[in-house]
Amino acid sequence: MLECRNIAVTERLHAFSTRIAPGSRIHLIGPNGAGKSTLLTRLAGMSRGVGDVLLAGQKLDEIPGPRLARLRGWLCQQLTPASLMPVFQYLSLHQPRNAEPAVLANVIASLCEVLHLSDKLARPVTHLSGGEWQRVRLAAVFVQVWPDVNPDSQLLFLDEPMNSLDVAQQQAVDQLISEFCAAGRSVVISDHDLNHTLHYAHQVWLMSAGCVIATGECSDVMVAEKLTAAYNVPFQIHAMAGRKWIMTVSH
């Protein structure tokens, strides 16, 4: 699906190579300034640097913009609404070309219901709370790549998608991500909630100081020793109520 070969960004990201298989849910973790957003931006084709990113065997830099928008979705960490357009119009800007109107309408209605936006469609995007605007942005990027309306979609890159969301809204986003991956697509997510990563990620990339210092299955990366080394904070992992939980250790 996607392969990167020795990609790097001067003074921000050291050389990194990997492959992403279909159906993968990858969480990118590490302290502030570790390079998570830089790596995501490079993988999504939103920045340039050393090395190559290949999607479906073609270099990302050589894929025309409209085609790239069909292959992958990208949610940046922050975006300020810039006009008074209503939510339904903002969502329409992200609909794939040539989507069947009836199917598209059903997908948008379903996404808005899951994300609790059905009563916000007529509201100007500038009149939304932080959490409402984040959910609108998420709905828009899901519309862009949702398999029912875009059979060409392959990947979704989400930079801290849970920002400003409460627990119920986070669960709704996790539900959509799971459905997207179950359809053979892959998602790469930057995440600051280590327990969220521990409970939901298939694979984890752990970063520190611009380097990806560990990659692999969640159970192999989310161990106290590796997390302590990356965050410079002592961690322990405990089992409670049938699940594992990561906790910091008091000095």
Rank of each mutant, 00 (worst) to 15 (best):
L2N: 05
C4I: 04
L13K: 02
A15V: 06
A15Q: 08
A15E: 13
R19G: 09
A21E: 15
H27N: 09
P31K: 13
K36I: 01
T38N: 06
L39E: 08
L40P: 01
L40T: 02
M46R: 15
M46W: 13
V50Y: 05
G51P: 05
L55Y: 10
A56C: 11
Q58M: 01
R70G: 03
W74Q: 14
C76T: 14
Q77P: 06
M85E: 14
M85K: 07
A99R: 12
A109W: 05
L111V: 04
V114D: 09
H116M: 06
P124H: 12
T126E: 12
S129C: 12
G130S: 04
E132Y: 05
E132W: 06
E132L: 07
L138Q: 05
A139V: 06
F142M: 13
W146P: 06
P147M: 03
P147I: 03
V149T: 07
N150L: 10
P151K: 13
Q154H: 14
Q154M: 15
F157P: 10
L158D: 11
P161K: 01
V167Q: 11
Q171P: 02
A172S: 15
A182Q: 15
S186C: 12
V187C: 14
D193R: 12
V204E: 00
I213W: 00
V233R: 06
V233K: 03
Q236K: 14
Q236F: 00
I237K: 10
M240Y: 07
M240D: 00
